[in-house]
Simulated assay, not measured.
Amino acid sequence: MDELMRGRVYGADHEDPDPGPQAGHVYRELVGGPLDGLLVDVTGWTERELDDGAALITEIGAYGPGGRALYEPRPSDPRRWDWGGDVP
């Protein structure tokens, strides 16, 4: 089993009995920063969107509730997205 198929998915409710990845979906692993270890569901994203990465809302980043954590694909392994900092 692919190691990316384990873990909790970004945005899953803390009360969700199955917060892990779902069959038929495509994920990227977030590395570093406030969302380290979570998976982000990129099912249906275009190549350009995947290349751009994401600014993900988080309450636990440097800017508190409503702030965003920036993640971009790792050049050597685009299945993993590295943290690039927080923005308001």
Rank of each mutant, 00 (worst) to 15 (best):
D2A: 06
E3H: 09
L4S: 02
L4N: 02
L4Y: 03
L4R: 00
L4P: 01
L4E: 06
M5K: 02
R6Y: 11
R6S: 14
R6V: 11
G7L: 01
A12G: 08
D13V: 03
E15P: 00
P17T: 10
D18T: 07
D18E: 11
P19N: 14
P19T: 07
P19G: 15
P19F: 05
G20E: 02
A23S: 09
G24A: 03
H25W: 02
H25I: 03
R28P: 00
L30W: 02
V31L: 02
G32D: 02
G33N: 01
P34E: 02
L35K: 02
G37T: 05
T43Y: 07
T43A: 01
T43F: 10
T43N: 03
G44L: 03
G44A: 03
W45R: 15
T46A: 00
T46E: 00
R48Q: 07
E49H: 12
L50S: 10
D51L: 15
D52T: 10
D52P: 08
D52A: 10
G53S: 12
A54R: 09
A54M: 14
L56Y: 09
T58C: 15
T58S: 09
G61R: 05
G61D: 04
A62C: 12
A62V: 04
A62M: 11
A62D: 11
Y63C: 12
Y63E: 15
G64N: 08
G66Q: 09
R68D: 09
L70E: 12
L70F: 10
E72H: 06
P73G: 06
P73A: 12
D77C: 10
P78V: 09
R79G: 01
R79C: 01
R80Q: 06
W81G: 00
D82Q: 14
D82M: 12
G84W: 07
P88A: 15
